[in-house]
């Protein structure tokens, strides 16, 4: 499948996967992550149950310190 991840098209072998699997595949291990799938905010408790499929627009934001 192809998804848009942080404004870039990325291709994965799997047909679909959940957010936990996506983060593992991309090696995103940072604690303070904000995930949006097609504009919807996905809570941490919903990572394992939220499916990402072909054509989805995914935003992974690292909330790092500084301001």
């Amino acid at each position: 499948m192809k998804i848009i991840l942080n404004n870039k098209v990325e291709e994965f072998a799997a047909d679909q996967f959940n957010i936990t699997e996506l983060l593992k595949a991309k090696n995103f291990t940072f604690k303070m992550l904000v995930i949006k799938v097609n504009g919807h905010l996905v809570k941490k408790s919903e990572h394992a149950t939220t499916i990402v499929k072909d054509g989805d627009d995914v935003m992974v934001l690292h909330l790092i310190s500084g301001g």
């Binding site: 303070m32 904000v34 905010l41 909330l63 790092i64 310190s65 500084g66 301001g67």
Partner: peptide
């Protein structure tokens, strides 16, 4: 949003979104 701490950044993002 002009906080320094990530927890506060998340707090306002969540509040505005919801």
């Amino acid at each position: 949003e002009a906080f320094d701490k990530p927890e506060m950044k998340y707090l306002i993002l969540d509040a505005v979104h919801n």
